[in-house]
Computed example of a mutant assay.
Amino acid sequence: MTTQFSYYDERIETAAEQLRADSEAYQSADEIGDLQNQLENIVGFERVANSYLFYPTMEQTDGKSVLTMMLANDALLEAGLTPTVGYELPPEFVAAYEQLQTEGIGRTTVYSDQSGTWVSII
């Protein structure tokens, strides 16, 4: 059985364009602030520690898989995962990303990175 999750919000496209032009726009643009607040509101739901948006294209940098951060909740921003910063993907996240491409949703096994131990649903 394939589960497909699809969500479209025009604010995401607007934020992506503004952040490509100015990676600091999340600090001042009202439209991005509204989206940022939405990401922050998700945190605290049962078992949700962080929420974030990546640009969709995985790239290879120095032989490592990387996604570029578009926007994240406050804790991740404070940890340095600001817009346009690359996030080196652990193998478990890469597998979930590949699952997302074929099944429409991806889920990692438990993995650890510099910020802690996680399970991610993408």
Rank of each mutant, 00 (worst) to 15 (best):
G44E: 07
K64L: 06
T82D: 05
R20T: 01
E40H: 13
E40I: 08
T108A: 00
A21F: 04
T108K: 02
E98D: 12
E98G: 01
V43F: 07
F54N: 09
M70T: 03
E92K: 07
D62M: 10
I105G: 00
V94T: 14
Q101D: 06
F54W: 15
E78L: 07
E78W: 00
Q38F: 12
E59F: 02
V43A: 09
L76T: 07
E59R: 13
V94E: 13
S28A: 04
V43R: 09
L100I: 00
V43H: 10
G86A: 06
D30R: 11
Q27A: 12
P91Y: 04
E92C: 01
E59P: 00
G80E: 03
R20L: 05
M69Q: 11
T68D: 07
Q99M: 14
L81H: 06
L39S: 12
F54A: 02
P83N: 04
D22E: 08
A75I: 10
A96D: 01
N50K: 09
A49W: 04
L39Q: 13
D22N: 15
K64I: 00
V85R: 07
S65G: 10
D34Q: 12
Q60S: 13
E88D: 12
G44Y: 09
Q18C: 01
A79V: 02
S65A: 15
S28Y: 12
P91N: 10
K64H: 13
T61S: 09
T68Q: 14
E98R: 13
Q99P: 11
A72M: 03
T68I: 12
Y26N: 06
G44C: 06
Q38R: 11
Y55N: 09
E103H: 11
P83Q: 03
F93H: 08
N50F: 15
N37I: 01
T109N: 09
V85A: 03
A72S: 15
L77R: 10
N37Y: 04
E78R: 12
L100C: 05
I105D: 09
L67N: 08
N50T: 09
T108H: 04
E40S: 15
D62Q: 14
Y97V: 07
L77A: 07
I32G: 05
R107P: 03
